[in-house]
Design a protein around this nucleic acid. Sequence first.
DNA 1: TCCAAACAGTTCAACATCAAACTATCTCTC
DNA 2: GAGAGATAGTTTGATGTTGAACTGTTTGGA
Lengths: 148, 148
Amino acid sequence: MPTHFDGSSTECLALDSFIKLVRAADSVSSQVNEHLREHGLTVSQFGVLEALYHLGVLNQSDLAQKLLKSTGNLTTVVDNLAKQGLVERRRCTEDRRVVYIHLTDVGHETIASILPSHVAGVVDAFSVLSPEEQTELGGLLRRLGKGK
Amino acid sequence: MPTHFDGSSTECLALDSFIKLVRAADSVSSQVNEHLREHGLTVSQFGVLEALYHLGVLNQSDLAQKLLKSTGNLTTVVDNLAKQGLVERRRCTEDRRVVYIHLTDVGHETIASILPSHVAGVVDAFSVLSPEEQTELGGLLRRLGKGK
DNA sequence: TCCAAACAGTTCAACATCAAACTATCTCTC
DNA sequence: GAGAGATAGTTTGATGTTGAACTGTTTGGA
């Protein structure tokens, strides 16, 4: 992963770290998410199902916030999940602006059946690092992610 | 960033590290790439221009490989760059399957004028970590990224 | 009470992205 | 030299993604 950049050592180190960060996230993500294709789910769809599974019923704004996506995007992803019968929209009666997203029975079964292999994939991907190293990494990433 | 997952400590640690990795990459990327909008460039377009700037003329397959994208995607991104007059396609005469992508003069100026602020943005984002910590992080990420 | 501002979702246009099917070209082998 | 298989790019169909404009709904202050 050479940087091909003729800058100061500070600059080269930061650029190199940046590339490694993006590549590692890409690489681990694609490794971890590979199994989703067999279930006909995209990464975003999985994210929505997982959030609903762990947090219960949510409206689209909450989902957007949890998943760090725009509300327009959530409309699309929820549309596609609803088409597959995995979630259901229910208009809130007290505040008619709000739409609650529910897992259907099929959706619940689907996510419940996928989660174990997802967790196993993540554990496997991180097994190249010891628990202490994972903790060390987590600390560095947390500080990095807070930078803005 | 709680995991809301009731698994073993090994599982929770890996899941937590995974979330931190993805969030940090997202957060740093969006911080670093924010300035591209002012120049009317997307992240992918910037990636192509940067590769051409540092590596010289490339064909689309090479570009796809460098940027870890599909060749179909490269067709689209190069189309959009060509529309803006920033790159130019030139059919190879020896092997007529191959298309070389060149930076135009405008493209060269554009990427040259953007790079300094890009580098500054990366340095700034990583300035929350000391050089030693960045090196430590890089090592962990490198091992993680190799996992597949 | 009424209206302006805030808020939840949707829609739209533009771009990204992939996998898979396809076209054109090249190369290797018989 | 002809055909099989490999290779470079394009196209297509489906999905994701954003920002901005838009619709309906709610709420708070004059």
